[in-house]
């Protein structure tokens, strides 16, 4: 901390989390009753995630360019998502609110993904979105790729909100989550002014009627998790693309074939 006149400035050291290696990621859209059974089994075998309060609201703001380059790549099964995540006890009706923001980069390929994220004050997240060098480029080089996307005009365009129940193994090799009340919102393209204010959510594009269960893992899974995976496959209503792809399809009215 240093003083400059009567102003005090604090150097922001971002909290940093990253996957040790690429994780498998499977998503299932299941009924409420199936989700209850799945999460009961999960609760018997895994502890609740320390960082996720049960049923807290997760608000994720996704970025893309004017020509939708991230979405177009995502539809091919390989893309890097750039997003800002916020957590709240009650559902906010705005995004980019004051408080802690998690700048997340997620590199998707076929059925694996690699995620890195930085917890920073929202002001720093806004600076990052404006293309200012806010974050160190660690581990997988995702921050550098994200900076290129921002330089190419990527900006917040669409938002998801949901209640999440998350269970995590102690070594983080297995994570199972259930997302309820999943909602997709449009976000009008940012105007140059008023950049410091929270931005109101645009139109509610859609609500998921069911529960999205996700299983993420690397390495060997225990037997119960393999059984649970089979049970989920048998009871899945629909193959699920990522939330980003579903949100963008709603946003753009894109009824093309669903990517696997």
């Amino acid at each position: 901390m240093k003083t400059r006149g009567d102003k005090v400035t604090t150097k922001v050291v971002p909290a940093h989390e990253t996957d040790a290696e690429r994780r498998h990621e499977h998503r299932f859209q299941v009924s409420e009753s199936v989700a209850r059974l799945v999460m009961r089994t999960t609760a018997n075998n895994l502890p609740l995630s320390r960082d996720d309060r049960p049923y807290q609201w997760s608000t994720t703001t996704y970025c893309d360019t004017v020509d939708w380059s991230i979405y177009r790549q995502a539809k091919t099964g390989s893309a890097m998502q750039l997003r800002i995540r916020e957590y709240h006890r009650t559902r906010p009706r705005e995004v980019l609110n004051p408080g802690t923001a998690w700048i997340e980069f997620k590199d998707d390929e076929e059925d694996t993904s690699l995620k890195e994220r930085f917890g920073v004050p929202m002001d720093s997240a806004r600076s990052f979105l404006r293309g200012e060098p806010t974050l160190p480029n660690l581990d997988h080089g995702l921050a550098e790729r994200a900076a290129k996307l921002l330089k190419g005009g990527a900006r917040p365009v669409v938002v998801t909100q949901y209640n999440r129940l998350a269970y995590n193994s102690l070594d983080s090799s297995l994570r199972i989550t259930a997302d309820h009340n999943l909602m997709y919102f449009a976000l009008p393209w940012a105007a140059g002014d008023g950049d410091e204010d929270p931005r109101p959510l645009g139109t509610l594009l859609a609500m998921e009627p069911n529960v999205i269960v996700e299983m993420k893992w690397y390495g060997e899974r225990p037997h119960w998790a393999l059984d649970l995976h089979s049970y989920l496959q048998e009871n899945t209503k629909q193959e699920r693309p990522s939330k980003f792809i579903v949100a963008m399809r709603w946003l753009l009215g894109d009824s093309g074939p669903e990517p696997k």
């Binding site: 004017v66 939708w68 365009v157 669409v158 449009a186 009008p188 139109t203 009215g253």
Partner: peptide, 12 residues
């Protein structure tokens, strides 16, 4: 999709 109009406005 061609990048001409604001997607959120058209979605509304």
């Amino acid at each position: 999709a061609r990048g001409e109009l604001d997607a959120a406005v058209v979605a509304a």
